[in-house]
C-alpha cells in the first residue's frame, strides 16, 4: 500500500514536472490504475470493492485520459505543450511543505491517521496538485491537476479511514467524469473560439 502511495506521489510529481500533454495523459492513466489497485488491495475483496475499483479504472484510468488524448490529437502541435513552471511556483512549494508539516504535527496526537506514510504521500500529492493548478498555464494542465488532487484525496481517505463510503466514492467518480467531460469539451471550444489553450488569455471578464 505504501508503495502504491509512493508511486502515486511520484506520478503526481511527474505531472508537475512534465510539460508535454501527451505525457500528462499517461501519468493520469497511471494514477487511475494505481488507484484501482489500491481499492482492491486496501480492503477485503467483495463485490462492492470490485465494482468501485472497476469504476475507478474506467473513469480515471480510461475515460479522462482518453478524452484528453482524443482532443489533443485534433490540435496542432503548438497547443499540446505547456509553459515552463514559473519561478514562484518553487517558493509556493516550499510554503506548502511547511504547511503540510504543520498540519501533520497538529494531527499527530489525535490518532486519526491510520497509515502515516500513506497519509504523507496523499497530502503531498494533493499539495503538488494545488501548486500545479496555480502554476501551470495549459487548460488541460488545470484539468489534469484537478483530477490529480481528487486522486490524492482518495488516497488521503484510504490513509485515514481505509476507504470512503461506496456511495460517496461512486458519486465522486460520476461527478469527476462529468466535470472532466465538460472541461475537455470546453477546452476544445475555447481552442476553437480563441485559438489558445493558455489560461492567461482568459481574462476578458474583469472588474
Amino acid at each position: 500500500m505504501n508503495d502504491l502511495g509512493l508511486l502515486l506521489f511520484l506520478l503526481a510529481l511527474g505531472l508537475l514536472w512534465s510539460r508535454t500533454m501527451h505525457h500528462t495523459v499517461w501519468f493520469l492513466a497511471g494514477e487511475g490504475v494505481l488507484l484501482s489497485l489500491m481499492v482492491w488491495t486496501s480492503e477485503p475483496v467483495t463485490a462492492v470493492t470490485v465494482v468501485v475499483g472497476l469504476a475507478t479504472l474506467v473513469v480515471k484510468g480510461g475515460l479522462i485520459p482518453g478524452l484528453i488524448h482524443r482532443i489533443l490529437r485534433t490540435w496542432p502541435a503548438a497547443f499540446r505543450r505547456d509553459h515552463p513552471l514559473p519561478l514562484w511556483a518553487y517558493g509556493i512549494t516550499v510554503l506548502v511543505v511547511l504547511a503540510v508539516s504543520h498540519v501533520i504535527h497538529l494531527l499527530g496526537p489525535t490518532g486519526v491517521i491510520q497509515h502515516a506514510l500513506l497519509f504523507f504521500y496523499a497530502l503531498a500529492s494533493i499539495h503538488v496538485g494545488f501548486v500545479m493548478i496555480v502554476a501551470r498555464r495549459h487548460l488541460l494542465s488545470q484539468l489534469a491537476s484537478l483530477v490529480a488532487i481528487e486522486n490524492g484525496l482518495v488516497v488521503l481517505a484510504v490513509s485515514l479511514a481505509g476507504a470512503l463510503p461506496t456511495f460517496i466514492e461512486l458519486g465522486l467518480l460520476i461527478d469527476l467524469g462529468i466535470a472532466a467531460t465538460l472541461m475537455v469539451w470546453m477546452s476544445h471550444r475555447i481552442h476553437q473560439a480563441m485559438h489558445t489553450t493558455d489560461v492567461i488569455t482568459l481574462r476578458r471578464l474583469r472588474g
Binding site: 494545488f130 493548478i133 487548460l139 488545470q142 484537478l146 488532487i149 466535470a179 465538460l182 472541461m183 470546453m186 477546452s187 471550444r189 475555447i190 473560439a193 480563441m194 489560461v199 482568459l202 476578458r204 471578464l205
Partner: peptide, 15 residues
C-alpha cells in the same frame, strides 16, 4: 465570454 466564465466557474468551484 460565456466559455471563459464557465471555465472559471467549474474550475474554481471544483477546487
Amino acid at each position: 465570454h460565456a466559455l471563459e466564465a464557465a471555465w472559471k466557474y467549474i474550475l474554481i468551484a471544483s477546487v
